[in-house]
Design a protein around this nucleic acid. Structure first.
Length: 572
RNA sequence: UAGGGCGUAGCCAAGCGGUAAGGCAGCGGCCUUUGGAGCCGUGAUCGGAGGUUCGAAUCCUCCCGCCCUAACCA
């Protein structure tokens, strides 16, 4: 059993599956699938069900399929197919040669539809969408209560098999206008589950499909396509989110009433919800289309593409999904857990560098004018094999503006007038003078150094309370750093005033762009996607916008910051 | 309202009738050439009320709360 987070034992889904295997269902075979609709980019919430389906197939020695659920040509595009495949691959999920599309099964689905018609279990209905809704017995207001009346049969429900067949064939042939007729399953208009009240199987839509082009003008609905697609592929366990629970009786009904041997079992689990962000394609699309973010891969987005650009690793996302667990209880996971996962991963693997984001010039007055030393720095204290590097040191350096205070409060250990601190891997320095401009802002510090402390150790054993990072001024390269915070101010963006919407909770400061940052010279040739820890500041990832003369870094996540907490308490 | 679900510490989550794992967050401390990392310590009687039982978070009954569906979206 694990004791490093996550859960112990088997979750309820793995229990069900191992029971099925033990009982010899499906010949002991396990075969899962993940069925994205190509109408947007996938996000961490999708990663949860994707990885679960994939992991389970592996754990039980089974197979995993990637299948695009492309039954609605009006919303779907091949651009999304490509993007989703890239993201799935990046997450380390291998579907081998099993890439499928629901549209691969259109012909088979059509044949099965005729089968149901011939069995007297499906009929062509001429009711409009609104009428179907009314006949279904859609909930109505009754005073302040809601009433769900029983449905009543469509007047077209008892058409003969011959007439249904003729009409359905003519629907396919394109003889009727869009929306004028549907094919419906003949189940039970009084069923307590509304999904069973003669659900629509086909609708007439003249839209060009990203794969089948204009070959069809009737398209299967999700309910009519999903279970059968699972069956065709030999899927044994169909894991999906809770909102499909109400559809399970219908999923089973279709399979029960079709000449199909394979019996996939649908099991539903709670979808992921995360604080300070939204995980719904509809909302993410609005953020993109209304320009609140730069695109689906904006590093503030919870999309896989956005997280990749931000600097997240597949491993951290795996760890997060594993820790979140699998249950049917819908909860909201705190974003701090995700941040913990990426910090833990990057702490192990990211090389350290020094970068000054908000520079303050320091002149070391007793250091020789033209002298330059190459000091040795450790690339990663967590990984000896990462080795060492040289960092130039000279008379003029930059330090972080917030590492100096002219009038420091009690718990502030960093540089202050008359105080000695350590420059990481370099020397102890003592602040002797504070230079200000006419408006009283600190523009430069004068310090002295102790030559005996080279490398950072004092031979006399004296200690300093702080170590700060720095960059040699003449050697520094300029860079741009983009700081990201949560997109939304509230934990739950949907917590809004009556009449408002989630956009009201957008944080206008979720992106802060810093230019004129001073980076140590070894960062000069960093390539897009490379990740570093900027000592004491956080983890950063080189953005694709980087140019040779202008490196751009995205802050993935800050380091845990005890001083920030103390500072917050002091301010009250 | 009907039907379907869910309810264990601030958050996630084990527990499957024998007397509440773990992780995250928080707090306190140790250590530290990152106020990083690491290490140690610290919190719940299980939505509520009854009942069954020697014994219940686990079984039964009733109640309360929250979520989903009521698209020719998925």
């Amino acid at each position: 059993m694990r004791n490093d987070g996550g859960t112990t034992g088997l979750d309820f889904i793995r229990q069900i599956i191992s029971d099925d295997v033990r009982e010899g269902k499906n010949g002991g075979r396990v075969h899962t699938r993940w069925p994205p609709e190509p109408n947007g980019y996938i996000h961490v919430g999708h990663a949860k069900t994707l990885l679960l389906n994939y992991w389970i197939a592996q754990e039980f020695g089974g197979k995993f399929n990637l299948r695009f659920d492309d039954t609605n040509p009006a919303k779907e595009e091949s651009e999304y197919v490509e993007a989703i495949m890239e993201d799935v691959r990046w997450l380390g999920v291998d579907w081998e040669d099993r890439l499928f599309f629901a549209s691969d099964y259109y012909e088979q689905l059509y044949e099965w539809a005729e089968y149901l018609i011939k069995e007297g279990k499906a009929y062509v209905c001429d009711l409009s969408a609104e009428e179907i809704s009314e006949y279904r017995g859609t909930a109505k207001r009754d005073g302040d209560a809601m009433i769900t009346p029983p449905g009543k049969d469509s007047p077209y429900r008892d058409r003969s098999v011959e007439e249904n067949l003729d009409l359905f064939r003519r629907m396919r042939a394109g003889e009727f206008p869009d929306g004028s007729r549907t094919l419906r399953a003949k189940i039970d208009m009084a069923h307590p589950n509304l999904n069973m009240r003669d659900p629509v199987m086909y609708r007439i839509v003249r839209a060009t499909h990203h794969r089948t082009g204009d070959a069809w003008c009737i398209y299967p609905t999700y309910d009519w396509a999903h279970g059968q697609s699972d069956a065709i592929e030999g899927i044994t366990h169909s894991l999906c989110t809770l909102e499909f629970e109400n559809h399970r009786p219908l999923y089973d009904w279709f399979l029960d009433n079709l000449p199909i041997e394979q019996r996939p079992r649908q099991i539903e689990l709670a979808p992921l919800a995360l604080t300070h962000t939204v995980l719904s394609k509809r909302k993410l699309r609005r953020l993109v289309e209304e320009g609140h973010v730069a695109g689906w891969d904006d590093p503030r987005m919870p999309t896989i593409a956005g997280m990749r650009r931000r600097g997240y690793t597949p491993e951290a996302i795996h760890d997060f999904v594993r820790r979140v667990g699998v249950t049917k209880a819908e909860g909201m996971v705190e974003i701090s857990l995700l941040e913990h996962c990426i910090r833990q991963d990057l702490n192990r693997r990211a090389e350290r560098r020094m970068a000054v984001l908000d520079p303050l010039k320091v002149v070391i007055t007793n250091y020789p004018e033209d002298k330059v030393e190459e000091l040795t720095a450790i690339n990663n204290p967590e990984d000896e094999s990462a080795g060492m590097r040289k960092v130039p040191f000279s008379r003029e350096i930059y330090i972080e503006r917030e590492d100096f205070m002219e009038d420091p409060p009690p718990k502030f250990y960093r540089l202050a007038p008359g105080r000695e601190i350590r420059l990481r891997y370099a020397y102890f320095i003592t602040c002797t003078d504070v230079m200000k401009n006419p408006s009283g802002n600190v523009v430069e510090l004068r310090c002295t150094y102790d030559p005996a402390t080279r490398g950072g150790d004092a031979p006399d054993g004296r200690r300093v309370k702080a170590t700060i990072h720095w960059v040699s001024a003449p050697h520094a390269i300029d860079g741009e750093v983009r700081l990201y915070g949560p997109l939304f101010i509230k934990e739950n963006p949907d917590d809004v005033e009556p009449g408002g919407d989630f956009l009201d909770n957008l944080d206008p400061d979720s992106l802060v762009v810093l230019t004129g940052c001073k980076l140590e010279p070894s960062l000069k040739n960093a390539e897009a996607g490379e990740r570093f820890q900027f000592e004491r500041k956080g983890y950063f990832c080189v953005d694709p916008d980087t140019r040779p003369d202008r490196p751009v870094f995205n802050r993935t996540v800050t380091l845990r910051d005890t001083w920030a907490k103390i500072k917050g308490r002091i301010k009250g």
